[in-house]
Design a protein around this nucleic acid. Structure first.
Lengths: 122, 122
DNA sequence: CTAAAATCTCACGTGGACGTGAGTTTCAAC
DNA sequence: GTTGAAACTCACGTCCACGTGAGATTTTAG
């Protein structure tokens, strides 16, 4: 499929797909005229890239771990990156949970203060 | 305390503190000569800002919710922002957990695949 | 075969959170 | 009173994941 179709299927922009190629994350075939041609697999790869971006991985890191997902095997170095990133996500999860609690406390206190003189404990 | 001391205490750069002021998040007193002077409370505020940044809030959003934390009360609008951001964090937590699982699966498969198939040590 | 749609390659623009001088002024110590 | 560290104000630079034309080329529908 061509770039426009993949863009529609995945919901990412054409520009983004070209950027992914620039970074080496998703390199398609080319037609005689130079147009990009993606396989069905491309859809899943784009999803993965989005997932990893959402997890805060950089394109460089994604570039390292994508081949492992594709080939279902990893060099020791790549495996180390995978584990390190999982740990990073774990720390981030804990951090986020902490901030969530912060926010929750603020909401509890602020709302009781703003809504009325009603200082009912939970 | 002056900006350098606060920077050291909080671990953020002097430039960052000036930036926080630019954004209105942490506005210190000024000496006659124009030097910034922060109270002890400044340390905690910087920690909060960092927390919220880490949670993915923009400086503009932080600017909205910081007064609520300080005054322990919120306008209905600010409260709505607080709740919306908590929800956003909840969604992000779920998202991150999903990606973590993805990564975990990849690690499980890749490591077993790498060890059994290619069991050549260095 | 033609016309329009899609795609192509530059290449500069954007936004957020600062980094990094440059040149000047203030403050604390002696 | 002097001096050196620390702070001050511009104001341009950086990094990342794209956005956004401009202008040329390729592909597809009629």
């Amino acid at each position: 499929m061509r770039i426009g179709e993949l863009a529609e299927k995945t919901g990412v922009s054409v520009r983004a797909l070209r950027y992914y190629e620039e970074q080496g994350m998703l390199v398609p075939e080319r037609s005689a005229g130079g147009h990009r041609h993606y396989s069905e697999r491309g859809v899943e790869v784009v999803w993965l890239i989005q997932q990893f971006y959402a997890a805060g991985l950089s394109s460089k890191t994604i570039l390292t771990i994508l081949p492992c997902v594709e080939s279902r095997e990893a060099t020791p170095e790549a495996l180390a990156v995978l584990v390190a990133e999982r740990d990073r996500i774990d720390r981030r999860l804990a951090e986020l949970a902490g901030t969530r609690k912060q926010l929750d406390d603020v909401i509890a206190i602020a709302s009781s203060g703003a809504c009325s003189h009603d200082s009912r404990p939970d």
